[in-house]
Design a binder for these strands. Structure first.
Length: 493
RNA sequence: CGGGGCGUGGCUCAGCCUGGUAGAGCACCUGGUUCGGGACCAGGGGGUCGGAGGUUCGAAUCCUCUCGCCCCGACCA
């Protein structure tokens, strides 16, 4: 049958990405332009992301709630910057029940307006603060060009919305949630991200400050994987979100909002996957281990299936997400390719020889540097005793999780350029897709715009201290003026 | 909205120029032999060619209109 190979990443990255999404059955286009159907394999990843994040939100004191999808148009237009930012991508409902509506409704592009409108009703005094809520929802933004997971007209996300007594408290919340995203991306997605504030031009419409986590994909384009906003009192003022303070005065509350979306699934794909298909970190893999039984005769089949089933039950009892691939009419080899394409972290082969020796063969999806190396041109194969198997499997899953992180971090650092002081050199670097470019910036919008217009690269983030270069730039790479920040520049999704 | 491409079984595509009433590979179904890196043989089901109109004895093929999709550029999580 010889299924066609995937396009190579090095030859056509976006064709490679599209093929993975399609062939691993993660998602496909719906009949409506720009919107997508998320299939079980893709949704399974999203569900695991949700579970992990939801727990982190609860652990930091947040509660889930749900606000409706239809928002009065007048709400959106109340905050000047907010309308300006979202007007071009609004989907508006003008008819209902066969009649023209008195006031058009928009499909939420984000929920600040409706949420702060409601908070205003719930808050009287400082005793009602803080409000710490999150919602899991879909949002709609009319996009010109779409890519599955990375940018679609409707997407799934979570949006946290909080209200606080003081600016300091709101700022602390904004940073705390950015930290939650960062931890999630490190520990679960195995995706190293750099964190920090956005420049003014990249700030969320209506926010005081926007912070982001940014990953570097394998084509050296940056992906904004999550944002956290300090909204100041902008929305509170517009929606009359006031409270009586401890001193008896009437004050506007301070708000934050923060979100991550199904875009992370795209980030996951572009961070780890290879020319053989999808690669999923064990913590987010709907199937962590797949067992492929191997046999020729009926007698062998009975013995092998017995052993495979026992292993299956043992792993399942140990809390491993395991699947026994008992499809007949498909050769073991064909199954190997299939599971590699779909990104299953560990493949376990059980055949007559294994049963005889009381072992199994485990093949990790990505080579583990701490295990016996693979023979040249072959996949790494580990011969594992049946005794203590579930413990060993756990250990290998953990090892794979950290291996993926290490690989991604090494790749990002190999594609980060620091110390450039010449604008011409910077242009040349961007021209050949060099990755993250750390350079001095005077802080002016003029210099930022100039770079964007001349190179298509933008400031992804002004990195927090721990992400900054050892030697800090002293001059703006564009105008040569005094550098107020070190900025990270890259082309982005 | 500007530039390019494409709509033919589930998928990828050939056929269109030089009209004659639809074909391949993969997938699917049945039976048998296979099975430690993409199995093979035999048999079988499934499309009226994006839509509408026109030319013609006859249209997937020619003409007109129309709808939709994809890719590249201007906006964005």
């Amino acid at each position: 049958m010889a299924e066609e190979k995937l396009p190579r990443r090095s030859e056509d990255f976006s064709a490679w990405y599209n093929e993975i999404v399609s062939r691993a059955e993660l998602a496909e286009h719906s009949p409506v332009r720009g919107s997508m159907v998320i299939r079980p394999n893709g949704y399974g990843i999203w569900e695991l992301m949700q579970q992990a994040l939801d727990k982190m939100f609860k652990d930091t004191g947040h509660q889930n709630a749900y606000f409706p999808m239809l928002i009065p148009l007048s709400f959106i237009t109340k905050e000047a910057k907010h309308v300006e930012g979202f007007a071009p991508e609004l989907a508006v409902v003008t008819q209902g029940g066969g009649k023209e509506l008195e006031e058009p409704l928009v499909l939420r592009p984000t929920s600040e307006t409706i949420i702060y409108h409601m908070y205003a009703k719930w808050v009287q005094s400082y005793r009602d603060l803080p409000i710490l809520m999150n919602q899991w929802a879909n949002v709609v933004r009319w996009e010109m060009r779409t890519r599955l997971f990375l940018r679609t007209m409707e997407f799934l996300w979570q949006e946290g919305h909080t209200a606080h007594e003081t600016e300091a408290e709101a700022e602390a919340e904004t940073l705390q949630m950015l930290g939650v995203y960062r931890t999630f991306m490190y520990d679960h997605m195995a995706m190293p991200v750099i964190c920090g504030p956005k420049s003014d031009s990249e700030r969320f419409a209506g926010a005081l400050r926007t912070y982001a986590v940014e990953g570097l994909m394998q084509d050296n384009k940056a992906l904004q994987a999550g944002t956290s906003h300090n909204l100041g009192q902008n929305f509170a003022k517009v929606f009359d979100l006031q409270f009586q303070s401890r001193e008896g005065t009437l004050e506007y509350a301070w708000n934050t909002s923060w979100g991550v979306s199904t875009r992370m699934v795209g980030g996951l794909i572009m961070t780890h996957s290879d020319d053989d298909g999808l690669v999923t970190p064990p913590k987010l893999a709907p199937v962590q281990v797949v067992i492929v039984p191997i046999f020729k005769t009926d007698v062998e089949q009975a013995v092998v299936m017995g052993a495979a089933d026992a292993v299956f039950r043992e792993l399942k009892a140990a809390g491993v997400r395991v699947k026994l691939d008992s499809r007949d009419s498909m050769s073991p080899g064909a199954k190997y390719y299939d599971h590699e394409l779909k990104g299953v972290p560990l493949r376990m082969e059980i055949g007559p020889k294994d049963v005889e020796k009381n072992t199994v063969v485990i093949v990790p999806r990505v080579e583990l540097s701490k295990e016996e190396a693979a023979k040249p041109g072959r996949k790494q194969k580990l011969f594992v005793p049946r005794e203590g198997l579930s413990e060993r499997v756990r250990q290998l899953l953990d090892a794979l999780q950290s291996q993926l992180f290490d690989n991604a971090l090494a790749r990002r650092e190999a594609n980060s350029v620091r110390g450039t002081t010449s604008y011409d050199e910077m242009k040349a670097l961007i021209e050949r897709d060099a990755g993250f470019i750390y350079a001095g910036w005077c802080g002016s919008a003029e210099c930022e715009t100039k770079v964007k217009e001349e190179t298509k690269a933008t400031i992804r983030v002004i990195p927090f201290e721990e992400f900054r270069s050892a030697v800090q730039p002293t001059h703006c790479i564009v105008c040569g003026g005094e550098a107020r920040h070190e900025a990270v520049w890259a082309k982005s999704y």
